[in-house]
């Protein structure tokens, strides 16, 4: 007869066996099942450089503050077009080497933004490098640590022609010094830029967000056109052009008093938002946002830019945006 109060052997054995059985059922079996997932057809593996970047991402403990999962709830829809799928992690979550296991990329804390789609949201290498060198140069309120040890100062005349340097004015370099990005910084940025949520061609994601626990009634939507534009601007533009619209001297141009923004004819502004801009040497490259934003979004952003910080230009008609988008698409298809 089993008397656990007196029989230490069976007590320990029972505790061990039941726990092991439960663990197999709730951890090991589901883990094996999750391994059976295949990559989404068309998804690309990481390049060697991106993999080195991933390794730095893990070493530096970025996962402590940045998640990489778009949950299937509506508040997460700003981080990706669709909820994350198990297959999304096929390439990134492989064992790193004999010493280190598959990286815990999903994360448990969102002290900084989710990075699932950061490569689409912020494709500019210049921005990423400046941000790593000192986050507060580009995002004033950021509490992210600086990674300036991944950069070194050097005299302009000694810098290799293919070395990547940071703009001198914003990094406050004296004389002929310049900040040069190390290979680590470049690898890390390459990895960050590779973080782009894979989009399904037929535009029908296999899963939808669980509807929002939204506010009652229409009041919120009706009265907040203005704040909608401000919000979209904040999410899509402010990282470079800043909330104040003043940009970052020597890296990203100001929108305050800008001729393009304040022009009576908004076509140039709309075009830049749609297809990006790289015409001025002294500033970073502006990415195309047409893919990510609807015409209504662009109108809201443009109206916000044209009516804030002392800018004063008329609203943009929606038709202009639709027309410009069509003409650009036609140009491309022709």
């Amino acid at each position: 007869m089993l008397n656990l109060h007196k029989d230490h052997k069976n007590l320990v054995l029972l505790a061990f066996v039941v726990f092991a059985a439960l663990s197999i059922g709730v951890a090991i079996m589901p883990a094996y099942q999750m391994e059976e997932y295949q990559p989404i057809p068309g998804m690309k593996d990481l390049t060697a450089q991106e993999r080195r970047g991933l390794s730095i991402y893990v070493s530096e403990g970025c996962v402590a503050c940045h998640t990489q999962q778009v949950r299937n709830i509506e508040m997460d829809n700003i981080w990706g077009d669709r909820p994350s799928l198990a297959s999304d992690y096929y390439y990134s979550k492989q064992r790193m080497d004999i010493w280190r296991q598959s990286p815990s990329l999903l994360g448990s804390e969102r002290t900084g933004p989710d990075l699932t789609d950061i490569g689409n949201r912020q494709p500019s290498q210049d921005w990423h490098l400046l941000h790593l060198y000192n986050p507060r140069l580009v995002v004033e309120a950021s509490v992210m640590p600086q990674y300036s040890w991944m950069f070194h100062k050097s005299d302009t005349s000694y810098v290799d022609s293919d070395a990547v340097t940071l703009p001198r004015s914003i990094t406050q370099m004296k004389d002929s010094e310049v900040v040069v990005a190390s290979q680590d910084a470049l690898d890390l940025v390459a990895y960050l830029k590779s973080l782009q949520q894979f989009s399904f061609e037929d535009n029908e994601p296999p899963m939808n967000f669980i509807p929002a626990l939204s506010k009652d009634g229409e009041t919120a939507i009706g009265g907040s056109k203005k704040s909608e534009g401000a919000g979209l601007y904040q999410n899509n533009c402010a990282a470079c052009h800043q909330v104040t619209g003043r940009g970052v001297k020597g890296a990203f141009p100001p929108l305050v008093g800008s001729i393009i923004v304040n022009d009576q004819n908004p076509e140039m502004l709309i075009k830049i938002i749609l297809v990006g801009y790289d015409a001025r040497e002294e500033y970073g490259v502006m990415p195309a946002l047409g893919e990510n934003l609807t015409d209504e979004d662009i109108k809201a952003i443009a109206d916000h830019e044209r009516s804030s910080w002392g800018n004063n230009a008329p609203e943009v008609p929606l038709e202009t945006i639709t027309r410009l988008r069509d003409s650009i698409t036609n140009d491309r298809t022709l």
Binding site: I28, A31, M34, Y89
Partner: peptide, 20 residues
Amino acid sequence: IGYFPTYQEGLGETVIQGYY
């Protein structure tokens, strides 16, 4: 279980992480 590698590729690792 937390350190044994064979079931920890992909999201298998995440299942184990939650458990662990």
